[in-house]
């Protein structure tokens, strides 16, 4: 019997979201160990053109549910479509990239299918002894690491952004299978009426390779401009501590930490952030950490790979200028 591991493709505006390829990378690696195949599920109107990209990255099949009622995301419609598809085709597991949409969808699907959901996994391995996926995920905001398994089929798992390498290019093509599922408007509760976009496109915090983050040491909202400038030169996203968010200097969307986002960029540059434990749990797994602080004894200065003891108002503009000079 062929085992199959599914990845649910997330797309917006006709574009595949990059974390989907990370989920596909995770699923492919498990499928390989299990001697199974990977398939990608594409829900949505006219989303069939994503199949080429998914095939190229190793999906053997693309299951495409093309339905007018799936034109935009709805928790009801997507849950219905995936549940029907899973009941009919019985995959071993369904993998999603963790995202706002996935966090809305996957738990509802788990309840409907009466199966286990393991969110935000950082590792997945095939356990041949019982034919289940053994996964690792952080608990208690990263203060502990749990090894977990799902009971029930299909197992549902989500991949934490940047924890898995994107599926390599195999140059393959997927068999596109059109799946007919009857979906009417009554299934589609929780439909997104509108996406409000900020004026300027921003690098998504959880997906950024570099993050420049500011805290209370910035002193005010206008002063964040020096971080925006540094970020622009580095192609980085701008984050913030809770102190800066609660003061109204930055949106909550930028907050890093226990009650904000957990980020794992290649490079995290903290400016004027002391490093309270609730902040540390959000960024401690960054590959390289730079802390800039007047106070050499601030906790973040001890955790950092590079700790710069300086006044950030002098140092950050100098860093930006130096970067610009060397990029010329």
């Amino acid at each position: 019997m062929g085992t199959e591991f599914w990845v649910v493709a997330e797309h917006r505006g006709g574009q595949l979201r990059r974390p989907t390829l990370e989920a596909l990378g995770a699923a492919r690696q498990v499928a390989q160990a299990a001697g199974g195949k990977t398939a990608a599920v594409v829900l949505g109107k006219n989303a069939g053109n994503l199949a080429a990209e998914l095939g190229k990255h190793g999906a053997a099949r693309v299951l495409w549910v093309d339905n007018d009622n799936l034109d935009v995301y709805s928790s009801g419609g997507y849950t219905h479509a995936l549940a029907e598809l899973a009941r009919a085709q019985k995959p071993d597991a369904i993998v999603f990239a963790a995202s706002a949409q996935t966090r809305d969808l996957a738990p509802r699907l788990a309840a409907r299918l009466d199966t286990g959901l393991l969110p935000d996994c950082i590792e997945m391995n095939w356990d041949a002894s019982d034919g289940r996926i053994l996964a690792k995920r952080f608990v208690n905001s990263g203060k502990a690491l749990a090894t977990v398994k799902a009971r029930g089929t299909p197992a549902l798992l989500t991949t934490r952004p940047k924890a898995f390498a994107i599926a390599s290019d195999t140059g393959g093509t997927a068999d596109v299978v059109r799946c007919d599922i009857s979906i009417d408007a009554s299934h589609c509760f929780g439909k997104v009426k509108q996406y409000e976009q900020p004026a300027a496109a921003k690098v998504e915090l959880t997906e950024a390779d570099i993050i420049v983050s500011g805290g209370r040491g910035l002193k005010g909202p206008a002063e964040f401009a020096i971080l925006d400038e540094l970020a622009a030169v580095l192609g980085a996203a701008v984050g913030a501590s809770r102190a800066a968010v609660d003061a109204g200097w930055r949106e909550h969307a930028a907050q890093v930490g226990q009650t904000g986002k957990v980020v794992t960029p290649k490079l995290y540059i903290a400016c004027g952030i002391s490093g309270a434990i609730q902040h540390l749990v959000g960024m401690t797994n960054s590959k390289v950490i730079v802390a800039i602080n007047k106070d050499a004894d601030a906790p973040l200065m001890k955790l950092a790979d590079y700790a710069v003891v300086a006044d950030l108002f002098l140092f950050v503009p100098a860093l930006t200028a130096e970067l610009k000079r060397s990029q010329k």
Partner: peptide, 11 residues
């Protein structure tokens, strides 16, 4: 339950 925790370790 539909999930099980097999082990918890320090990060």
């Amino acid at each position: 339950s539909r999930t099980e925790v097999l082990k918890v370790e320090p990060p």
